[in-house]
């Protein structure tokens, strides 16, 4: 294999700057879309767990639609299609006045996809807790809604801490799809460097290492938080 290794290229400007800015955008897109995913996902997951006729169905539709369309397709729908099918004034505002349209579109598109997945985790977590604790709570005279609010929800959310960490890491990986609408995040920048210098292996290796570091850091952080606030503290009492 004929290849001239040159790691030094990466330390030279402007390439080093590109990598840093790429990392910055990756972090911003990940956090932005995760914020949306949590907000929408927890709401939808809770809605899906409720005992009413209408609300769970609406939440169910959101979950099924946004889980089953690939995130890249959803991104394109928001970026290309939404401005065209939205009411005139909204469409115009998006096309003209929206600040940082790539960023907003990216976090909305990725956020809503992840949100559907978070909703499913929340629903499953609440259901798993509820099987055991709902009968007990009802037996003490609590109404279903009270039991839900006071017991199922707090415990259910803590129980899914681990799965939510996985979802967050998936969201971080998904930030890379925003490069298709022009977002210069880390993966895009590594390709950019490859195009300019032909030292693709070094660039991709650095990007890989950065993603690995992010993954390890997030996992370690979540494990520490879980030890203090998570379900580990509430291990089911042995009968």
């Amino acid at each position: 294999m004929n290849y001239n290794w040159d790691w030094g290229t990466l330390l030279r400007e402007p390439y080093l700057g590109w990598l840093w800015s790429g990392l910055g955008w990756t972090v911003l897109v990940s956090l932005g879309s995760w914020a949306i995913a949590l907000a929408v996902g927890i709401t939808a997951g809770v809605a899906r767990s409720m005992h009413s006729r209408f609300i769970p169905q609406v939440a169910g539709v959101y979950i099924q639609v946004f889980r089953n369309i690939p995130p890249l397709v959803q991104l394109f729908l928001w970026y290309f299609v939404f401005p065209e099918v939205a009411p005139e004034s909204v469409g115009l505002w998006i096309k003209r006045d929206l600040p940082n349209p790539e960023y907003i579109t990216a976090i909305v598109g990725i956020g809503l996809f992840s949100g559907a997945r978070v909703a499913e985790q929340v629903r499953a977590g609440v259901a798993a807790v509820g099987i055991h604790l709902m009968p007990a709570a009802l037996a003490t005279g609590l109404r279903p809604l009270q039991a839900f609010r006071l017991i199922l929800l707090p415990l259910g959310l803590r129980a899914i801490f681990g799965p939510l960490t996985s979802e967050f890491l998936i969201t971080v990986k998904l930030s890379s799809i925003s490069l298709t609408i022009g977002m210069l995040e880390l993966t895009a920048q590594s390709r950019h460097i490859e195009n300019y210098t032909f030292h693709g292996l070094e660039a991709f290796a650095v990007a890989t290492a950065v993603y690995l570091l992010i993954g390890l850091a997030v996992t370690a952080l979540m494990r520490a938080i879980d030890r203090h606030f998570g379900a580990a503290r509430f291990k089911r009492a042995q009968p």
Partner: peptide, 11 residues
């Protein structure tokens, strides 16, 4: 499992 698929495709 930690690296984005797009990066793997570029690789």
């Amino acid at each position: 499992r930690t690296v984005p698929l797009i990066l793997v495709l570029f690789w």
